[in-house]
């Protein structure tokens, strides 16, 4: 019965999280489309920035989590850590896909092309390919435990590879807009109101990430339970 109690609390937490996320996302959209000032040079298309940047940040966070959980899984060999790594990887692939799509939509009117082989774009594309492979190897493995091991190896090497990919492609010219927030930002690159709205958006998308991550873990847990029950009944 105590187990059921924990489950109830978890369900409640995820409901609260979903409600919070919805409210914040609505506020966020309001801020982006009604409050945020129109960019002088870029016009309306600049608003995609408030969605593109937080989602890109979240996808990098996701792959960092995959890296950490994969190492813990290889050391501890408990299914729990594998589930966490898997959930982070899957949500990460979704986020990276959205990052690429919003980037493409932005690039066409601003740069005049859908795609260009610029370092950050190229790195993100390679990142996407690596984590597609990360998800694929699980379903192509002969059994679950081997799939988890192989995926962990790819999750670790993939993450180590990301900075190497970035530096190798950076030695070509970069035309991506340079960092406007964070430690490398030039001062005055972003209006204060824009920075505040970006911050709200970042919080909203972080919440969305946590929500999806949490949901994926519990679904994965059910999947594992079902697989085990079926295996038991077949014997």
């Amino acid at each position: 019965m105590s187990n059921l109690g924990i489950k109830n609390i978890q369900t409640k937490i995820s409901y609260v999280l979903a409600a919070l996320c919805t409210i914040l996302m609505i506020i966020n959209l309001y801020l982006i489309f009604w409050v945020a000032p129109l960019d002088v040079v870029l016009g309306h298309i600049q608003k995609i920035f408030y969605i593109h940047v937080p989602i890109a940040a979240m996808s990098f966070l996701a792959f960092f989590l995959v890296f950490v959980f994969s190492i813990i899984y290889l050391v501890k060999r408990s299914e729990h850590w594998d589930r966490l790594a898997y959930a982070a990887g899957e949500v990460g692939v979704v986020f990276v896909s959205v990052t690429l799509l919003t980037g493409v939509v932005w690039a066409k009117p601003v740069w005049g092309v859908w795609w260009t082989w610029e370092p950050r774009l190229t790195t993100t594309l390679i990142l996407w390919l690596i984590y597609i492979a990360y998800i694929m190897v699980r379903s192509y493995a002969p059994n679950r435990s081997q799939g988890s091991l192989y995926a962990a190896a790819i999750g670790i090497i993939g993450f180590i590879d990301v900075p190497i990919v970035y530096y190798s492609v950076q030695w070509w010219r970069s035309i991506h807009p340079s960092a406007v927030v964070g430690p490398f930002a030039e001062s005055g690159a972003l209006e204060p109101i824009m920075a505040q709205i970006l911050l709200v958006s970042l919080v909203a998308f972080t919440l969305l990430f946590v929500l999806l991550f949490n949901q994926r873990i519990s679904v994965k847990k059910q999947e594992d339970l079902l697989a085990k029950t079926l295996e038991f009944e077949n014997k």
Binding site: L129, I132, A133, M136, V137, I154, V169
Partner: peptide, 14 residues
């Protein structure tokens, strides 16, 4: 098919 899918993205830098 799996080998190139896993392998090529990782060796792009080199």
């Amino acid at each position: 098919v799996m080998l190139p899918i896993l392998f090529f993205p990782m060796v792009i830098p080199i």
